[in-house]
């Protein structure tokens, strides 16, 4: 069984936000509901200053707080599948927003409006693709919550094609944020395989989880650059 995880090396991240833009086009972004976000901040005082560039998508936690809240309210719209991917079923989501409130990382995005890219100008680009032609994770629904899916629409294709060994390597089977990075600051793959690139990177770099104290066991690890907060 594979369990997907990611490492983001903030030593390498140069803050370009290619991953943020790529996620948006890949995942049918609607304004106001961003799945991948850059948090950048200065460390130090002039003239000894550095900057931390830290992108955050979903952590796909082992003990997802979002799922716990969703289960508790009875909607049971959030699931964690056998590969560790945490997904929201928009049809079951009741739009209470509790998942957004409890996530330590601010990941779930409440989509109150399904805003168009160009108000008053009609649909453009991926907006023209009807829901029937989209993966269920891209059939956005107003007043529901959405978030990063580890590009599950690609991962499940790898499963269906029998190409799980190509996840994290081939573009069609790799989360888009991980494949566009100009400096390859991101590694994605099976953390249950000790020889995978992601397992090796975690081990060799001493990558850590953020906000461990919340106890959700996130599956996105970060190599922390100097001054970066965990």
């Amino acid at each position: 069984m594979a369990k997907f995880a990611r490492v983001i090396d903030t030593n390498r991240c140069m803050g370009c936000r290619a991953c943020v833009a790529a996620c948006a086009t890949e995942n049918y972004y609607t304004p106001g509901a961003q799945w991948n976000a850059m948090v950048e901040y200065e460390v130090g005082t002039y003239p000894t200053v550095k900057k931390v560039f830290n992108t955050i998508g979903c952590m796909h936690c082992e003990q997802p707080a979002c799922k716990a809240a969703c289960d508790k309210v009875g909607a049971k719209a959030i699931s964690k599948n056998e590969f560790g991917v945490v997904l929201i079923d928009y049809e079951k989501c009741i739009g209470c927003g509790y998942c957004a409130a409890v996530c330590p990382y601010g990941v779930p995005q409440y989509n109150s409006a399904l805003n168009p890219l160009y108000p008053g100008k009609g649909k453009v680009a991926y907006e023209t693709i009807p829901n029937a032609m989209r993966d269920p994770t891209h059939r956005k629904k107003v007043n529901t919550v959405e978030k990063c899916t580890f590009c599950w629409h690609k991962l499940k294709q790898a499963v269906a094609d029998g190409k799980m060994d190509r996840i994290g390597k081939d573009q069609q089977y790799t989360p888009t944020c991980d494949l566009v990075c100009p400096v390859q600051a991101r590694v994605f793959g099976d953390v249950d395989d000790p020889n995978s690139a992601v397992s090796k990177k975690i081990k060799e770099s001493g990558a850590v989880q953020l906000k461990k104290n919340f106890g959700t066991a996130p599956q996105v690890y970060y190599v922390l650059t100097e001054g970066a907060k965990s």
Partner: peptide, 15 residues
């Protein structure tokens, strides 16, 4: 949230 109770991992139907 301190100590989220582990609710077990359910197999996702799509998977």
């Amino acid at each position: 949230l301190s100590g989220v109770a582990a609710s077990g991992v359910s197999f996702e139907a799509v998977a």
